[in-house]
Simulated scan of single mutants.
Amino acid sequence: MIETQTTNNASIKINNVNRIYIDANGNLVEALRDINLNIRAGEFISFIGPSGCGKTTLMRLIAGLDKPQSGELFLDNEKIENTNFERGYVFQQANLFPWETIENNIAAGLKARKIYKEHKNEVKEYIKLTGLEGFENSYPHQVSGGMAQRASLARALINNPKVLLLDEPLGALDAFTRMDLQDKLIELWQQRKTTMVLVTHDVDEAIYLSNRVVIMTPRPGKIEEIVKIELERPRNRTAHKFVELRKEILEKLHIARKH
């Protein structure tokens, strides 16, 4: 059985981070400028802002897939310099191995870490946890986009990460599937207390899922404002306070676009 580890989460510190790169045309691009943020252990936090504002760049820095020009990032006071299984990453597209079954895709991380034999029984538990029972022996092309993203979540979670990085994982899904998976994310977050960091363009999604919403400016990406979401769970998208928060964040996004 899977153990729910309420202490298996981590804080993230982002100190004076700047990221500049050269694009395909040879132009210098300032993606992020002076990013400072503390993400609390066990928090669900979202980043929202216009396309190209550096949200995904920031996620890649937290994941250790990229490095800043200046500044530092820390996971529980340990400097982030490379990728690590403690930071799980779920991409916008499921990115499953097409030649492997759903079950084998979920087990891929365990096999790569050479701990599959010891944790083999957990694969079925994560299949159950993410609602994939009956699809274990299916291949990615045989399941829906929503099911593929469930498999991606299971593949990340089976490594028992302290932080789960969610880079618009629901953006390509239909509205019904998206809301279903939002509820699944909340369920997993409440059960496991994993620190979750989400990039999204969807204001409602950010409000529905998060403890705080970080609003970013257009490039160079800076933190314009951080909005606390002090709503009881489960959240009602049509409730007055929810609608007011949506209006407030949309107005702040409009202001941020002018900066």
Rank of each mutant, 00 (worst) to 15 (best):
T177V: 11
R40H: 07
G42V: 07
D76C: 00
L157E: 10
N82I: 08
K128A: 14
N121F: 15
E78W: 00
S138Q: 14
C53N: 13
Q69S: 14
T56P: 05
L181G: 03
R257I: 12
L157I: 03
V29T: 07
K162P: 01
G131W: 09
P161M: 03
Y21L: 10
G145F: 05
S144G: 06
I62C: 02
F242R: 01
M59G: 01
A10H: 13
H254Y: 15
L58K: 04
D66I: 00
A24V: 09
R19D: 00
Q142W: 10
V213E: 01
E118N: 09
N36D: 13
P68C: 04
G26P: 10
L129H: 05
P50D: 03
P50F: 09
A256Y: 11
F85L: 13
I22T: 15
G145R: 08
S210D: 03
T238K: 00
Y139Q: 13
V214G: 12
R87K: 09
R113C: 07
L253V: 06
N211P: 04
Q5C: 12
W189L: 10
L96E: 09
I223Y: 08
N77Y: 10
V203I: 15
I186G: 01
P234T: 02
G52T: 12
D180E: 14
G71I: 09
P68N: 04
K13L: 11
R237G: 01
I115N: 06
E125M: 10
R219C: 12
I12K: 00
Q182L: 07
L250I: 11
A148V: 04
V227E: 15
G146W: 11
A154K: 07
L58C: 04
E72Q: 15
H240G: 00
E100P: 00
K67P: 00
K120D: 13
I80Q: 06
I229C: 07
G131L: 08
G64A: 10
K162A: 00
E43H: 02
E251S: 12
P218A: 11
E30R: 13
K222V: 10
